[in-house]
Nucleic acid binder design. Structure first.
Lengths: 66, 66
DNA sequence: ACCAAATGTAAAACTAGCTTTACATATTGT
DNA sequence: ACAATATGTAAAGCTAGTTTTACATTTGGT
């Protein structure tokens, strides 16, 4: 799964730690998702979308391997 | 997290097993998500949304407890 | 060049998602 | 009423998501 968190974060001028704080997860969780080390739960995806004022689909995209 | 899988499934006239087959998971996984026993991964949520031709937000909604 | 803030990782430990197997209970068609 | 299909659960086991701690590297400002 690909994601556009880094760009969305830049648009809102948020650090990984800021974002983590806003949605109540650790900074490493954000970093790990952003760098593709793992896929978040749907709850987390919805919260990220909410913060970015975008849809989940705008932030996360399926790949062939999914 | 709430979800509208049962209704979406009815609209497409799909059984839990049909749906499971289409997205490549077990029938119990669908049943467990549908009955709220657990929250799916974002990959699964995106695939469900794809099958139902809806957005993830139309199918899954955050609750206060999330 | 220096300092602070931001980012990338990693290991250990815990929790939650998911599969398989298996059975029980509805629901529907004939 | 019977058979078939659909749904609800449960246990065991494996994998993946998440936290905490900790450290190394990068980036930005002065």
């Amino acid at each position: 799964m690909k994601n556009r968190i880094k760009v969305a974060r830049a648009e809102k001028d948020l650090s990984q730690a800021d974002l983590a704080g806003q949605i109540g997860v650790s900074r490493q969780t954000i970093n790990s998702i952003e760098t593709g080390r793992y896929v978040p739960s749907t709850v987390l995806a919805l919260k990220l979308a909410q913060v970015f004022e975008k849809t989940v689909e705008e932030i996360f995209q399926l790949e062939e391997t999914d």
